[in-house]
Every structure is written in structure tokens, then in C-alpha cells.
Design a protein around this nucleic acid. Structure first.
Lengths: 211, 211
DNA sequence: AGATTCAGCGAACACTTGTACGCTGAAACC
DNA sequence: GGTTTCAGCGTACAAGTGTTCGCTGAATCT
């Protein structure tokens, strides 16, 4: 049992890639049509059902792939850069590379987050939460290493991801924008948040009273 | 010339309201169908064309309405609260009220920002930019009044709006979430950004060197 | 009062959509 | 080598889509 399964996997990928390829600035995942996807994959419409019960199921597969791939890259970048330059800068660079190379996967994670079936939305939310968690973990380590105090690291991480996702979405929407400019803008915003978190921690330490 | 135009305006509104009513967590604007909208408005499909050349044109009208209404509310709130409690807190409260009362208008502004025809996306972007500008203007005033120094106010405002829009989207997606919790979380994040901007300004003032 | 405008309609159009059914032929199994 | 499995296909269907066209009748204008 090898040729058979291998071929099946191949057309499954063709379907996934076809769907991914039809996502664009003008067209979200929820506007895809089963028939069109099948056509682009070079497969009869009815054959689609041999691989997915639904377009939604394909969507879930896509979301999973997007999240996994994004996290893989980030983890890899973190190791590569190591201690040089700080996590934040390294992460931003990698993130932007991901944007450029996988715009459609990123579209899926960012803009479809709030539209579609509950299962679909939940899946995306879960991926993003994973992403936030890993960033929070790194931030914590970084702060410990540098002796920095920050308040509410998980919220800091969430804010950072929100900012970066938003800026990223804007970036791949306006292709004319410069990569360096975006990077710089992201870093500036992130730095601001980091500074704010430090300031807040200092303030809490000095006067831990109410309000 | 009164009865005629009045009636026309009434069914135009019916169309707009119908479209708005069909937007939901599961269904974005780009999934609407002309026929369905017309049906819900109690009008023959072909009559739609008496009011809009396109569904997109209706979308533009919706976007305009959403942006205008949101800004109106915010301006009103700012006046009402005046100096009491700071702009940020007052704005967040009003914003959340807008979310609750006009979830679908907000959906339009936030999640459809990056999908659809270029004109459509541009329209939304413009509304958001307006929103950011007005916030920036207020922030500047507030900083002057309180003698606070902040760096790059327009970027601060942009970050704030990004955060608030994102948190808001999450909020109307999980209806079970508590209003007070969201408010508090938003305020905390905004406060962090504000503190960060102050810290950055301080830092720039002390050592205005490169990097 | 008579002519004109025009919002709204119904019928019809050429498609596209998702999905059910049963067949085929090659790979996998025994 | 004979049997079973099953990915892929073609056909078919009912339902939905956007849009064109010409009509109607009441509000508007002259």
C-alpha cells in the first residue's frame, strides 16, 4: 500500500493549494466555491468529497497548516538569532518574511478570524492563541535574562501580536509599501508597548494601591 | 415633489437595513446576495437597481454610515465627559456601547477592512484613518493640558485604535464575555501604550542620538 | 387635464452552485 | 489469480445567482 495513498495525498494537496491560490485581497475563504477549487485542482467536483466532507473541512486544514508553518518559522528564527539583537527584532523580521512568502496563509489567519462557521473561527483563534503563548514565553525569558520587570506579560504579548498582525495585513494590502518602513514601524510600536509594560510594572511596584 | 422621493428614500433604507441585518458572525458582507437582500427588504430583485448599481455600491453606503455614526458617537461622548476621567476612558466606554448597539456596522469596519473590491477596502481604510486622526487630535490636546510629553502621537493613536478594534471584535464574537472585563482590558492596554509613548519621549529627550 | 417621469414588478435569460448516484479501472489484498 | 477496495468521473437535479427587458400605475410637472 504505497502508490495508492501517495496519489491520494497528492490530489489532496492539489485541492489545498488550489483553495489557497484562489484566496486574494478581493476574495476571502468564505467566497470560495467547491467547484472552482476542484476545477483549479484539475479534479472533478464530485471527487472533492473523497478528501473533505466540506469546504469548511478544507478550511480547517488550511488554518492548521498556516498556524503550524508560521510557528515553525518563528521558532526557527528565534534559535537562529539566539541572543543577538533581541527577540522582538528577530521575530519581526521573520514575521515579515512569512507575510511576503505566504500572503494567503496569513490572510487566512488574520482576516478570516471573525467570519465563518464557529468551528472555523475557533480554529483560527486557537492558532493565534498558540502564537501569543509562544511569544509570551519568550518575552518572559528575555525579561528574566535582562533583569527587566514587566507587568502582565500575556497581555503584552497579545497586544504585540495584535499590532503586528494588523500592520502586516496593511502591508500585504499595499504592496507598494517599503519592507524597511514596515519593519521599523512595527518595531517602534512594539518597543512602545514594551516600554509601557515596564513603566507599568515600576508603577505597580512603587504604589501597589487600588486603581 | 415630496411623496415620491420620500418613498424612494424609505425603500433605499429598507435595502440598507436588510443588508446590514444579514451580516453576522458567520456571514460577511462579501457573502451577501442581491436577491436575498431585496427579498428581506420586501422588494423585487430588479428594483434593487433603482437604488444601487451594485451590491458594492450598497456596501460603500454602509461603510459611510458606519464610519459617520461611530465618529458622531465618539465626538458626542468626548463633549459629554469633558475633562472628567480622561479621554481614553470615556472613549472606550462609548466605543463599547457602539459595539453592543451596532455590532454589524462594526463588523463592517473591522473585519471587512481587508477583503473585497479595492474601492470597498479603500473606503473602510479611509473611515478608520479618520477615526485615528480624531483620536490623535484629542490625545494631543490632552497631553498639552496635562503637560505630558509623548512621542509620535499619530502612531500612538494608530496602535490604540488597532488594539481597541481587535479587542472589540473579539468581544462581539464571544457574547458571553463580560462588558466590564473587556473595558478594563482595553483600558489597561491603552494605558500601557500611553505609558510607553511617554517613556519613549523621555528617552528621546535625554539621548537624542541615533538608533 | 394631459403629458411625462420613474419606482417597482414579473418573466425570462444564461449561468453557477452543492450534492446524490452509480459506474469504472487500477491498486491492494488474500 | 481472483476478490475487494476506493479515487475519480459523468450525469443529473433542484436551487440559487446577477442582469436584461418591457410593462404598469401613480406621483409629478406643465
Amino acid at each position: 500500500m504505497a502508490v495508492r495513498a501517495q496519489q491520494k495525498e497528492r490530489t489532496r494537496r492539489a485541492l489545498i493549494d488550489a483553495a489557497l491560490g484562489q484566496i486574494s485581497a478581493e476574495r476571502g475563504f468564505s467566497n470560495l466555491s467547491l467547484r472552482e477549487v476542484a476545477r483549479e485542482a484539475g479534479v472533478a467536483p464530485t471527487s472533492f468529497y473523497r478528501h473533505f466532507p466540506d469546504l469548511e473541512a478544507l478550511g480547517l486544514a488550511l488554518v492548521d497548516e498556516a498556524g503550524t508553518e508560521l510557528r515553525r518559522r518563528m521558532r526557527e528564527a528565534r534559535q537562529r538569532f539566539g541572543t543577538e539583537g533581541g527577540v522582538v527584532r528577530a521575530s519581526v523580521d521573520t514575521f515579515i518574511q512569512f507575510l511576503i512568502g505566504n500572503a494567503n496563509l496569513f490572510y487566512l489567519l488574520s482576516r478570516e478570524r471573525a467570519v465563518g462557521s464557529p468551528a472555523f473561527r475557533r480554529a483560527i483563534r486557537r492558532e493565534i492563541d498558540h502564537f501569543i503563548d509562544e511569544l509570551a514565553c519568550d518575552l518572559e525569558r528575555e525579561c528574566r535574562d535582562r533583569g527587566i520587570l514587566m507587568s502582565d506579560i500575556s497581555i503584552v504579548a497579545e497586544s504585540m501580536v495584535t499590532i503586528v498582525f494588523n500592520e502586516g495585513l496593511e502591508f500585504i494590502d499595499n504592496k507598494e509599501e517599503n519592507v524597511q518602513d514596515v519593519t521599523q514601524k512595527m518595531v517602534q510600536q512594539l518597543r512602545m508597548i514594551a516600554l509601557g509594560a515596564e513603566a507599568m510594572a515600576r508603577r505597580e511596584q512603587i504604589s501597589p494601591g487600588p486603581e
